[in-house]
Computed example of a mutant assay.
Amino acid sequence: MLWRYWWGVWLLRPPGVYRPQGDTFLLAAAFRDAAPPAGARVLDVCTGTGALALAAARHTGARVTAIDVSARAVYTARLNARLRGLRVRALRGDLLAPVADESFDVILANPPYVPGPDVSPPRHGRSRAWEAGPHGRLLLDRICAGAPPLLARGGTLLLVHSALCGIRTTLASLRAAGLKAAVIARRPEPFGPVMRTRAARLEAHGLIAPGQRHEELVVIRADRPQA
């Protein structure tokens, strides 16, 4: 078992579970700045260790649901919540499927978005935490389509991904679903180990400039109108 210090607490992070990184911090800050009311219904999609779910439960007293496709991640999120004395409902399932008949005031999403050669996501193993198809949008597109119907009136989706995956595509998809969408945060991030191994392929496909070894992370906020 490994431990990760994050936002003032130690999180259990077993091997194979996505650890909080730059995108997690960026999304957590966006959630804090959004200042949802106490008791808000919050959904954390692709929860990993449960870091964002715990942040929501700690700082707003939110009613939090966390989802991950990995059984190990779900167990980890539950255990981290229990160790902190926080109430988080952690469910295993494919993206939004476990809560298809519910609604939320805030949806947080930090899905896999690393471009790779496979046209479908892996079904097992650590790479499920990052593999996202040739354009990095295998899960992003599904969230953009599936999250808007789950938002309550006045609800907010906060979604983080790499600019390499197409910011305009995300904005267009969310706006087509009737949401008001905009980029609210940006942050340069050095390539991690996986991205470094794929730099030559990314260059060949024109996704990055020659010699580029960083990406820009963005948080997109999309709001459902009150009426």
Rank of each mutant, 00 (worst) to 15 (best):
Q21A: 15
A145T: 10
L202F: 12
T170H: 03
R137Q: 07
Y75D: 14
L95M: 10
C46L: 00
R201Q: 11
I167P: 02
E189V: 14
A100E: 08
A185P: 01
L174Y: 06
I167A: 01
P122V: 04
V119D: 15
R187A: 11
D101I: 05
L151S: 09
L140R: 06
G125V: 08
A35R: 08
W7H: 14
W10S: 11
T65I: 15
P149T: 11
R123A: 10
L26N: 03
D101R: 15
A53I: 10
T24P: 05
L2E: 12
I208R: 03
L217F: 03
E216A: 04
G192Y: 10
L174W: 07
V219M: 04
Q212K: 06
Q226V: 15
L150D: 10
A147I: 13
R198G: 03
D101T: 14
Y75V: 12
T60I: 07
V17H: 00
A132C: 08
R126F: 11
M195Q: 13
V74Q: 05
R78C: 12
V45M: 05
V17D: 01
P36H: 03
Y75C: 10
L164P: 03
A145K: 08
A28F: 01
D118V: 08
L158F: 05
G154Y: 02
T169W: 08
G61T: 10
L27W: 00
G85P: 12
G133W: 09
G133S: 06
V69P: 00
V219H: 00
Q226P: 10
A81E: 06
V218Y: 01
L207P: 01
A35W: 01
Y75A: 15
A176C: 10
L12Q: 09
R82A: 15
L95C: 04
S120E: 14
N80D: 11
R198M: 13
D33Q: 10
L138I: 07
A56S: 11
E189Q: 15
